[in-house]
């Protein structure tokens, strides 16, 4: 199953202004894994994600998706395998209607119209948004936008699903339904988020990034219960692990 694997080997990246964002990142993700990426603001999470589908190319080191090494000319192939859902659904959903937006990727893959329609329907059904097909994105609620944003990527049938803050600024109920959605996928998943409870619910494995390097890599429950490690990274224990008697405190 080597084609479902993503490997970063000593990836370094320097922005044009000289900032060194990644200082030798290495990890390996195998088929079916769900991996959380956490870290402080500016630690390099987004930069890592942007390397996964070739939006950025490493200054040195290699990124390999399946058998394919990431290079300028292999980017289209890589993008077919790695689907990225960006943080702000308003940036992700750029077409005038939900249907057009979900169809954008499959049409670019060169599929015939009938196959495109099938894919759009399947993807929208999978995220429970089939009824929204003819709506323009600005008529959707935050939760609906997130679901549709995920559908736009699923419709391309990628091998790996990469998400940046999939539940940011959603109300608790919508957040819960996005978590349910993510758990229903059998894809390999990579999720970057500050929402540690979400990571705990969705990802079996967790990477911690600090200053452009991986400082911890292991099973999520272990990593996210290491209070010292979390504190060093501007993070804190997930609420579900804090065991705080929240209710009594609030009622007093």
């Amino acid at each position: 199953m080597s084609h479902h694997l993503l490997e970063f080997r000593d990836v370094r990246f320097r922005y044009p202004d000289g900032t060194e964002a990644l200082k030798g990142v290495s990890f390996l993700i195998t088929h079916g894994e769900s991996v959380g990426i956490v870290g402080a603001n500016g630690a390099g999470k987004s930069t890592v994600l942007l390397h996964m589908n070739g939006h950025l190319l490493p200054t040195s080191g290699t990124v390999t998706v399946g058998e394919v090494p990431l290079r300028r000319e292999t980017r289209p192939e890589i993008r077919r395998k790695v689907g990225v859902v960006f943080q702000n659904p308003d940036d992700q959903l750029f077409m005038p209607t939900v249907f057009d937006d979900v169809a954008f990727g499959p049409l670019n893959l060169g599929l015939p119209p009938d196959r495109v329609r099938e894919r759009v329907h399947a993807a929208l059904r999978q995220v429970g948004a089939l009824a929204l097909a003819d709506k323009p994105p600005h008529h959707l609620s935050g939760g609906e936008k997130s679901a549709v944003a995920i559908a736009t990527v699923i419709a391309m049938e990628p091998d790996i699903l990469v998400m940046d803050e999939p539940a940011a600024s959603l109300d608790p109920k919508s957040r819960r339904s996005v978590i349910g959605l993510l758990n229903s996928f059998t894809h390999s998943k990579i999720v970057a988020s500050h929402d540690l409870d979400l990571i705990l619910d969705v990802c079996a494995r967790c990477l911690v990034i600090r200053d452009g390097a991986i400082v911890a890599d292991g099973p999520t429950p272990e990593i996210l219960s290491d209070a010292i490690l979390l504190a060093e990274n501007n993070l804190e224990l997930p609420l579900t692990l804090q065991g705080r008697p929240a209710r009594e405190g609030a009622r007093r």
Binding site: R79, Q92, F94, G105, L109
Partner: peptide, 13 residues
């Protein structure tokens, strides 16, 4: 960036 990630190659289909 989001368009490129979904295979945009200069034409809005």
């Amino acid at each position: 960036g989001a368009m490129l990630a979904r295979g945009f190659r200069g034409e809005v289909p």
